[in-house]
């Protein structure tokens, strides 16, 4: 089958036609195609949605970064957000599962290079729109695309860096890193809460007395109701005693479809294999006007 490959230092992207007639010799967007992205630490695969959304989402993400306003960007299959000053979390929907890749700044550069090459060769890829069946309650794919602007904004500035006091030191003989520093890139748990939740003001944390209220406060910081979501999104959420989200299981098709748009984008959407003693189960409802309800 015709294919096109793009390569940079740490990233390879392969587009391969499927169902193309035998006479087709060159890759084009005319036929369904699969996308395979090989990154430094992992590989991602999907259909044309993946290539299209990677191009669009990472381009918008980079634009926001370069104008000095880093924030998370999302589509129905791809999400990316800053983890800290030098790393980013890319989340991909692969069928019914979610896959993540944490990228350093140079790895993000390499990814954006190959995606820019793809967009240069196939400018129409950003309009490549297959016809998925969408559950009632979500508007058209175009409306989903419009979420880029209103997506959950997660701003991680260099305050994270500055909080790591060792980086402010000029003297190489200074003491080693503080153990209380923010987790290094790639060391955060897969089910981490949105980045801003790590910096909740102490007063607010102390005000959140119950685990349910603590969870609600974290989610309130991260949830911005997208314009395309017109119905309530409901998840059954398991949280371990340390507050880590072990799973967030969508309670209907709408919630499953929209999970990447929620703060549960990175959370497993199936029952956890092991549940530590003391874990709690909540029902979380995301509604209009940034409303979050945590029950019980």
């Amino acid at each position: 089958m015709p294919q096109r490959q793009y390569q940079s230092t740490t990233c390879t992207l392969l587009l391969e036609s499927q169902l193309a007639p035998a006479t087709a010799t060159e890759f084009s967007l005319q036929y369904p195609f699969r996308t395979l992205v090989t990154l430094a630490k992992t590989s991602l695969q999907g259909d044309g949605h993946l290539a299209r959304d990677l191009v669009s989402v990472t381009d918008r993400y980079l634009q926001a970064y370069l104008r000095g306003e880093p924030q998370g960007m999302f589509s129905s299959t791809v999400a990316i957000r800053p983890l800290d000053f030098l790393s980013h979390r890319l989340t991909i929907r692969e069928g019914d599962s979610i896959k993540q890749a944490d990228l350093t700044m140079t790895e993000l550069y390499d990814l954006t290079e190959v995606l820019a090459d793809v967009q240069q060769d196939f400018p129409e890829i950003v309009d490549w729109t297959p016809k998925p069946v969408r559950p009632q309650g979500l508007k058209s794919p175009t409306a989903i695309a419009a979420l880029f602007v209103g997506a959950i904004g997660v701003t991680v500035g260099v305050s994270v860096w500055n909080n790591r006091s060792q980086f402010a030191a000029r003297d190489p003989q200074d003491p080693p890193a503080l153990q209380s520093a923010a987790p290094a890139a790639g060391k955060q748990p897969l089910t981490d809460a949105p980045a801003q939740s790590e910096s909740l003001p102490a007063a607010r944390q102390s005000a959140a007395e119950t685990p349910g209220e603590q969870l609600r406060q974290r989610l309130l910081d991260a949830w911005r109701t997208p314009a395309s979501v017109t119905s309530e999104l409901v998840y059954r959420v398991t949280v371990d005693p340390q507050g880590q989200i072990l799973s967030a299981i969508p309670q209907d098709d709408l919630a499953r479809e929209a999970q990447l748009l929620t703060p549960f984008a990175a959370a497993p959407n199936r029952e956890p294999e092991t549940v530590p003693p003391g874990s709690l189960v909540f029902t979380v409802r995301f509604g209009e006007l940034n409303r979050v309800v945590v029950e019980p």
Binding site: F85, L86, Q166, F167, A169, D171, P176
Partner: peptide, 12 residues
């Protein structure tokens, strides 16, 4: 810089 950051060392 990324190496220093990942090893929690000063960029200096």
């Amino acid at each position: 810089l990324e190496v220093a950051f990942s090893e929690e060392r000063s960029p200096y």
